[in-house]
Computed example of a mutant assay.
Amino acid sequence: MVRKLTPAERLATADKDLLLEEFADQSSWDQFLVEQAVFHFGQRHDEWSCNDLRDVLPELGHGFLGAAINALRSGGIIAHTNQTVPSTQANTHAHRIAVWRLTDKGRTIAAQRAACGQQGRAA
């Protein structure tokens, strides 16, 4: 049986121009796309919450947001800042949600991906 890649491994090896066939090979490609979106958002913002992400994700991605956050957290890519903010989602009645940031591991993966992207453009 083939071992499933961790979120860190998927992010470290993901090519920015994935083919549709590669997405089809993913057992949960919707979650994979949302993980990529969260990681990308985290590279551009010091701290964020799901409120921020819901504003930029298509409606389909909202259902995968919690799973993507948990996968990235358990993979050591993002970490809780020990801060919370009220949810802006109407059905949550403003309950508190976590504020997140990239970890050192997440920033290292981002730097490696950026370096690979620059090498590809130079070639």
Rank of each mutant, 00 (worst) to 15 (best):
L60D: 05
L11G: 07
I77Y: 00
V85D: 01
A67T: 11
Q43K: 15
V38N: 08
N82V: 01
D46P: 05
A94S: 12
I69P: 00
Q118R: 15
I97V: 14
D55C: 07
A110F: 00
H93S: 15
A24N: 10
D17L: 11
R113F: 00
L33R: 11
A67D: 15
D30H: 08
T108W: 03
E9F: 04
A110C: 02
G120H: 07
G42T: 03
L53E: 00
T81S: 11
N82G: 12
T103F: 05
G75V: 09
S28R: 13
P86L: 10
A12S: 11
N51R: 08
K4D: 09
A24S: 13
L18I: 07
D55Y: 05
A122W: 03
Q26L: 09
L72W: 02
T88K: 13
E22H: 10
G42Q: 04
F32D: 15
I78Q: 02
L20R: 12
E59I: 12
R3W: 05
R54D: 01
R121F: 09
N70L: 11
V34I: 12
P58W: 15
R107H: 13
V34T: 03
E9C: 07
A122D: 12
A8S: 10
N70K: 12
D17K: 13
R101H: 09
T92Q: 15
G61W: 06
A98T: 10
E47K: 14
V85M: 01
A111C: 02
P7D: 04
K16A: 11
M1N: 06
G76S: 05
T108I: 06
I77G: 01
H80Y: 12
P58M: 06
I77L: 13
S27D: 10
W100V: 00
W29Q: 08
G42P: 02
T81E: 00
F64W: 10
T108V: 14
R44M: 11
A98K: 15
V99K: 01
N82S: 07
I69G: 00
A114V: 04
D55W: 04
F23N: 08
L11V: 11
A67C: 07
G117P: 02
L20F: 11
E47W: 07
S74T: 08
G63Q: 14
A71E: 14
Q26K: 08
V56R: 06
D15C: 04
H62I: 13
M1Q: 07
L11F: 01
V85L: 03
C50T: 14
A110D: 01
Q26W: 04
Q43H: 06
F41T: 01
L102K: 03
S27P: 05
S49G: 04
P7S: 10
R121G: 03
G75F: 00
I97G: 04
R73G: 03
D30M: 09
R44Y: 06
V38P: 06
A68E: 02
L60M: 08
A8E: 12
T6P: 02
D30S: 09
L60S: 08
Q36A: 15
F32V: 14
S28I: 06
N70Q: 12
A12D: 12
S74F: 06
F23V: 05
D15F: 07
A114W: 02
A24H: 03
G106Q: 00
E22T: 12
A90F: 14
T92H: 14
G75I: 03
F64C: 09
G120M: 12
N51V: 03
S74N: 14
K16I: 10
R44S: 15
E21G: 05
T84S: 15
W100G: 06
Q31P: 03
K4L: 12
